[in-house]
Design a protein around this nucleic acid. Structure first.
Lengths: 155, 155
DNA sequence: TAAAAATAAATTGCGCGCAACCTAATTGCC
DNA sequence: GGCAATTAGGTTGCGCGCAATTTATTTTTA
């Protein structure tokens, strides 16, 4: 009789390389699940989740430029430029060169872009229901995610 | 004098469509930050983060098939098939047809794939340090993410 | 047992994320 | 003023994630 089984068990207790133990994997899977859950709701607005995030920023900060937008969403121009072009193609926004600094692109909502907010108002609450988690737990979760994000940033 | 400022502030208190309030955005950003943080560590193993996840599963469950792997990682064949082909190209694994059921693909580590685990052993602890969060908080975070994932799943 | 249904994996196509690189405009410094 | 350094944004290329569809195999059922 070999003692492989026992050796393996001992090994698994020692090693952290087990998928079920990985906090990062849980976070990664939850993020994927969230984007998946948003999809049917956002289909009505013809938006992807990252596009929806951009629209949220613009609804509160119309005229923001690409750098500031990237800072708020933790995304770079390699992601944002094509995404913004797609939203421009849907006529939700326009991308205008800064008057005082020609390097800057300022993003302005069109009337259609402004109006889309009406269709989006119910989404946060729908998502809250889908998560089936108490608000208090969600706030704690958010705090930890924000800290994680900040801590991984400055290296 | 217009009362635009006041109107806006009242509006923002009412509406949840503000990026800073969005739990989902925090989770999404944290997940992106995590993958970004893994990248320099995984470069030494010539793996992406999703490839690393597949390897972790295989190190503990060699011979697993695509369906079971997809179930563990919450990913489908559209993601896994090309990813597994890339790992096969790196000669870390082989993809063999099941003997009793020809539809099934069973994934087996090569000697090289098995040996790669040695280089990976230090990664979980490195990541723990980078996060700068107490283990207790990380465990709570993981619990919430797992619940979120489960709750969004069954709809 | 032959046709229908179910199942496992593969394929196609699109939109991210991001590294690496490039371009154009602005700022700093002598 | 002129040239180097910096800055903002754009481009290219690759690897996911996933919806939608297809192919091949197995199971069910009439």
């Amino acid at each position: 009789m070999s003692n492989n089984k026992i050796d393996q068990e001992v090994d698994n207790q020692t090693s952290d390389l087990v998928i079920e133990k990985q906090v990062c994997f849980s976070l990664y899977s939850a993020a994927n699940a969230i984007i998946r859950a948003y999809r049917p709701m956002l289909k009505a607005l013809d938006l992807t989740y990252p596009q929806y995030l951009v629209m949220i920023v613009l609804w509160n900060d119309d005229g923001i430029n690409v750098k500031e937008l990237g800072h708020k969403l933790h995304l770079d121009s390699g992601t944002l430029t094509p995404l913004l072009k797609r939203l421009e193609g849907k006529e939700l926004l326009t991308r205008q060169r800064g008057l005082e600094d020609e390097r800057v692109r300022e993003i302005f909502l069109t009337e259609q872009g402004i109006q889309l907010k009406n269709l989006a108002e119910t989404i946060p609450n729908q998502m809250l229901c889908k998560s089936k988690l108490p608000v208090e737990e969600l706030l704690t979760l958010k705090e930890s995610c924000d800290k994680m994000c900040d801590n991984l940033q400055d290296e």
